[in-house]
């Protein structure tokens, strides 16, 4: 790792000022950032790192005004263990409990988990070996190269890398909002980025809170994940569903450059009883738009429809 200055911030304003110079990076749990710095995968190396964990009052889980509020620096382990979240916002607790390993869940924060950089072994090759599209370069190396874990729903801005957050699809299924120092963004819109990067956040914009409305009466949610190992691994595909209200919500991740709201699957299951047959139909609908490229798409498609079906069935 190269040397950088490290500052413990005491306020959001202080961080905002610091980030404005373009040479400073924010650190929370550091479980994604330190890996990128150690491997030196990006074009620019920050001169300064400013720590948000020392800003008081950002680590909380509370219900208020008919919604759940989670402070930006709340650790994933705390979310996974929180009884209210387990009971009412189940998909989020389940998603948080499946992130990486116990050590990483004790360090990683909810804001960091949704703001994490994409996963692609070209993008993440040490020493910025591949100056790819997502970094602002001209080539997506996965297009021609080994793309077995990449997008099966086409590229975004020419990039095939997938968003691998476990909590993002849960937040989208739960209709959450991301609050920053300057605005409130629908979780689904949070990832709609057109330029290089991974979220709509401006360079000096800071996530302060996650808000989740209380689920509609009778609604239940669930999250499931498929990975090769039971621990550590990022998802090959994951899936969160909320069913029971008027409008079911279903979101897949790691299948596309951003979390994929499976609208057709939602339509397929809307108003229907949860049966093996209906769940399977929703699964098929979820993958209706899957492309035939890359070659591994067939495999991920099979996993994705299975997860949608099973997530729905788990709420029967």
């Amino acid at each position: 790792m190269k040397p950088f200055n490290h500052t413990n911030a005491t306020s959001i304003a202080e961080i905002k000022t610091a980030l404005a110079d373009g040479k400073t990076t924010l650190i929370a749990g550091g479980t994604d950032l330190l890996g990128t710095l150690k491997d030196n995968i990006l074009r620019d190396y920050p001169a300064n790192v400013i720590n948000i964990k020392t800003v008081p009052g950002l680590d909380y889980i509370k219900e208020e005004n008919g919604m759940l509020k989670i402070g930006a620096t709340t650790r994933l382990a705390d979310i996974a263990a929180n009884e209210t979240i387990q009971k009412k916002y189940t998909a989020l607790a389940q998603a948080a409990s499946r992130v990486a390993s116990p050590h990483i869940r004790e360090m990683g924060t909810i804001a960091g988990n949704i703001a994490q950089l994409h996963r692609c072994w070209y993008l993440r090759k040490p020493e910025n070996r591949f100056d790819c599209k997502r970094k602002g370069g001209s080539t997506c190396f996965a297009m021609q190269g080994d793309n077995r874990y990449h997008s099966i729903l086409g590229a975004e801005g020419g990039c095939l890398a997938v968003n691998s957050s476990d909590t993002a699809p849960a937040l989208i299924a739960l209709n959450a909002k991301i609050v920053t120092d300057s605005r409130t963004i629908d979780a689904e819109k949070f990832f709609e980025v057109k330029k290089p990067g991974n979220t709509v956040l401006e360079k000096d914009e800071i996530i302060t809170e996650i808000q989740i409305p209380e689920p509609p009466k009778g609604a239940k949610s669930a999250f499931i994940k498929f990975a090769f190992r039971k621990s550590i691994d990022f998802p090959i595909v994951n899936c969160a569903v909320m069913i029971g209200g008027d409008n079911p919500r279903i979101c897949l991740n790691a299948v596309a450059p951003r979390p994929y709201r499976a609208v057709k699957a939602e339509e397929a299951i809307k108003g229907k009883s949860i049966t093996e047959e209906n769940a399977a139909a929703a699964g098929e609908a979820a993958v209706a738009e899957v492309k035939s490229f890359p070659e591994a798409a067939m495999f991920k498609k099979q996993i994705a429809k299975t997860l949608v079906k099973r997530a729905i069935l788990s709420l029967a």
């Binding site: 080994d146 190992r229 039971k230 621990s231 550590i232 691994d233 990022f234």
Partner: peptide, 23 residues
């Protein structure tokens, strides 16, 4: 090992998958 023209692509324990304790 994921190889491409003699180059090893998976060079971390994230991509080179030894079974975890849970497995």
């Amino acid at each position: 090992f994921v190889m491409r023209d003699g180059k090893t692509l998976n060079t971390t324990f994230l991509d080179y998958k030894i079974p975890s304790a849970e497995d």
